[in-house]
Amino acid sequence: MIKDIQHYLQKDAFEISAQFTLMTLLFNQVGNNFSRPFILFFAALAILLVNGFKQRFIWITLFFFTSFRVVYEWPMADNHAYLLALWCLVLLVSCNNNLKEKIIANNARILIGLVFLLACIQKILSPDYLDGTFFQYLLLTDNRFEDFTVLFSDITYQQIDNARELLGLYQFSSFSSEKNIVPDSSSFRILVLSATWWNLIDQLAVACCFLAPNNSFLNRKRDVSLLVFCLTTYAVAPVPGFGWLLVSMALAQCRNNSNIRIAYICTFFIILFYSNVYIWGLLADFFT
């Protein structure tokens, strides 16, 4: 088995990246009633057939149906839906091309860099991100983050419920008061501040490293920065599909049989673990 794994790690970047992209499509099950069955069918077919991932027809159909999903749902499709469609296009233009390793690696590096650069620009330009308003709002109103909030601050579930109720009154009735929605808690303020700046600095680091000139100091640190981002962000943010896609893309631009490649593959499965075992809920139950 170890020999098989070593053999697998020596495969070319296109093959590994294509296979992980296909797994992303199968795990994430994207699309609507029209596009999802086709996306799943062609992704499964590409995995089952010998060299199925090299077939141009597979990538044409996957590009078509992932794009169809974006157009059909427009403008409500998530940002990673656009990136997934573009990544299928990268795999389409690079398969059967003599320079496929170079094309796929350059596209992956630039696309990842641009995605993170834009995420940073949006945060810096936003009127309510840097002052902490966004994370105050998110941690109190989004139930996907409430266990995390309870675990890392001294706020209780009851206080979160009260905050949501009060916000609802302000928003959907003629209720008028000066009563604060945010509970008075210094640990919550620290959590908000940490989340705000960690997200921005981490994403800025990934953008700078991936867009830095080849072989520069920053560029050599790009994989570490992205791995740190994936391992920390997807432990909290419930968007594993984006994490799997980033890892699949990153696998296209790292060297064969390197430790970095092993780290990316492990990260792919750690994200799978994060998405299926709700660690913050378990820890919150244990500690609170």
Partner: peptide, 16 residues
């Protein structure tokens, strides 16, 4: 358009 949408990668950047 909400900055979260439309392929501009503005998710988790604003309450809008």
């Amino acid at each position: 358009l909400s900055p979260w949408l439309g392929g501009g990668y503005g998710m988790f950047s604003t309450t809008d």
